[in-house]
Design a protein around this nucleic acid. Structure first.
Length: 398
RNA sequence: GGGUAGGUGGCCGAGUGGUUAAAGGCGGCAGACUGUAAAUCUGCUCACGAAAGUGUACGUUGGUUCGAAUCCAUCCCUACCCA
């Protein structure tokens, strides 16, 4: 660098906005937009395919909030229309279509939860059915004419499905086009999405260009792995932590992740590296506490940690905060009672065979520490006793 | 439209007339050990039943047979090649 002309400094908020992203397209372009000094229109789209938001969704939402805090205009796009198509991104099979009713009710709970992260007052909510439901076939064809099959087939997920011989249905090819068109309708300046959304977001740029709009900048956030540490966090993989989950549950789930995953969660959910000088378990407890704090409250964070410790470190179930069930509602033999508790308290249906073979005979079922290994004997429990169903599931009789 | 290969339990994948509720793997669950981590070990993994057993199940429907996931027909579905 010569000292003749110093490079113009980047916008003061650029560094923060770029932090934690996995890809920004491009930083320079974003910088220029920021320098315009106006509130930018930031688009983040969600498909309400499931009623609950989990921690994986919060990664881009956090980014959206950052923009919001800096005075930009956050647009939460609800893909009520696209959800009925199903995003093929990363899928190895076509998504089962949802009915409109399902989608709308999902959308409602979805936005409620998103506002645990976003500022409700400053967020614009838009449904893409607004424009898509009014399009006619002619307009659809026109849109389709702008994208080639070859472009679509460059996508890894489609390519793979074609190579493996799994079906790809034509409506799935529409998805990126629709997502791109959303950007045109919204005149977005920036779109935030997971790294898997890169292609779809780029289609948005193409379409905006053809419509004579400025092209949106694209920010990709890393994908959060689920509890298993392998698959992306998702409801369908049953490896998620919902932002609506009660503190104790949330804490417990976080404690069950692997050490490797913990580092990742620190980075993506808290935006910090974990303190390597701490014992991994201590780090994990702090991670769990901080996340509970974020979605519930400071006190509940501390309470969840304290409860977890009495429950698992000290193995003192008596002092733990357990779900309760009335002792006199538990009639019948051990098998029947255990089945009932699983159903009523934990909302899990288990077959008698499973309960017998895996829970009762193995000694998982304990009443005040005493193993109940005979399924046929009548259950006798009284108020105050602790019925343990498994290592992680216990109830207090009342 | 023609040809070929296929459709098996949550997934992958053996099985080509009875010994098959169906090998093996993955995943999942319970237990032991632990830090509700990882790794490891044990057991389980269609339903009912204490068990013997019974019911249901190998794309659909029907048939052959004492007996079918396995043979035949029918229909549905998928991929690949050709048009």
């Amino acid at each position: 660098m010569s000292d003749a002309v110093s490079p113009s400094p980047t916008h003061p908020s650029l560094a923060q906005l770029v932090g934690g992203t996995s890809k920004v397209l491009s930083e320079k372009e974003l910088d220029e937009k920021l320098k315009e000094g106006r509130p930018l229109r930031i688009k983040f789209g969600v498909d309400p395919t499931a009623p609950d938001i989990h921690l994986g969704h919060t990664v881009p939402l956090e980014k959206l909030r950052q923009f919001q805090e800096l005075g930009h205009h956050a647009i939460l796009l609800i893909g009520d229309f696209t959800a009925t198509v199903g995003d093929p991104t990363g899928r190895s099979t076509a998504r089962p279509p949802l009915t409109r009713e399902e989608v709308l009710s999902n959308a409602e709970t979805y936005t409620d939860q998103a506002f645990k992260v976003l500022d409700r007052e400053k967020t614009e909510i838009v449904f893409n059915g607004e424009w898509f439901r009014q399009m006619n076939y002619e307009q659809v064809l026109k849109l389709n004419a702008r994208v080639t099959l070859q472009q679509m087939l460059q996508r890894e997920d489609f390519k793979e499905r074609v190579a493996k011989g799994t079906e790809v249905r034509l409506h799935e090819l529409q998805y990126p086009i629709m997502q791109g068109w959303d950007s045109v309708e919204l005149q977005s300046d920036v779109e935030i999405g997971g790294t898997d959304q890169l292609f779809n977001m780029l289609v948005g740029r193409d379409l905006q260009k053809e419509e004579g709009q400025a092209q949106q900048s694209v920010i990709c956030m890393p994908l959060l792995e689920g509890l298993d540490g392998v698959k992306k966090m998702s409801k369908s993989a049953h490896n998620y932590i919902g932002v609506n989950e009660p503190p104790i549950e949330m804490f417990g789930k976080l404690m069950s992740i692997s050490d490797e995953l913990m580092d990742r969660y620190y980075l993506l959910l808290l935006g910090q590296a974990r303190d390597a000088s701490l014992h991994p378990m201590e780090s994990k407890k702090e991670l769990a506490r901080l996340i509970v704090t974020r979605y519930h409250s400071e006190e509940e964070g501390h309470a969840a940690r304290a409860d977890w410790e009495t429950r698992f470190s000290k193995r003192d179930l008596n002092a733990a905060d357990l779900p309760e069930i009335a002792a006199d509602s538990l009639q019948g033999n051990v098998l029947e009672v255990v089945s009932q508790v699983f159903r009523d308290v934990f909302e899990i249906e288990k077959s008698n065979g499973e309960l017998r073979k895996q829970f009762i005979t193995t000694g998982a079922i304990q009443l005040d520490g005493e193993r109940l290994i005979d399924a046929t004997v009548a259950f006798e429990g009284s108020a105050g006793q602790i019925l343990r169903l498994s290592k992680k599931q216990s109830v207090r009789l009342s």
